[in-house]
Amino acid sequence: MLSPRLDITVEQLAGVEKCLDNLQQETEARWVLLTDVTGQFIGGCGLLCSMNSLNVEALSALAAGNLATTREMARLTGEEARFKLLLYEGDCQSVYLSDVGGEFVLVIAFDNSVSISAVRLYTKQTVDRLQEILHRARATVSPPPVGLDEDFGQLLASEMEFSF
């Protein structure tokens, strides 16, 4: 077995993004981001859109590492269930990380003027909805993407010679 593949169809991704958009609007969040536990950026909205896309991916890697660390801590301290969320409080903004079915991490950043209980409530609803969509994505088997064929490897190799 190799690492499991995550393959999300256009429609499923649209569903995910709609959930994230709704959450951002309901909570007036600064930004919302979804990553998988391996640190792979899946989607996001709000101020993220004005950030360098590469930094958004770095943010995903850090968020995933963060929740993975808490989960490991839970295990070592004898907590049977996972620690499901993590809250960072800054001077003007806070960041909230939630576990989505053990496979994904939802991150939401909001101004401290926003009520945390509202964030908690809407996040919980979003997590449930996301879990449904992502569960379906895991179960869907799509044909390999067009372009990923024999020539791809060779073209990639020559592209690397040129770029690196």
Partner: peptide, 12 residues
């Protein structure tokens, strides 16, 4: 991770 909308192939 294959993102079919952005047509990205992400590898770790």
């Amino acid at each position: 991770f294959i993102n079919r909308r952005l047509r990205e192939l992400n590898l770790k």
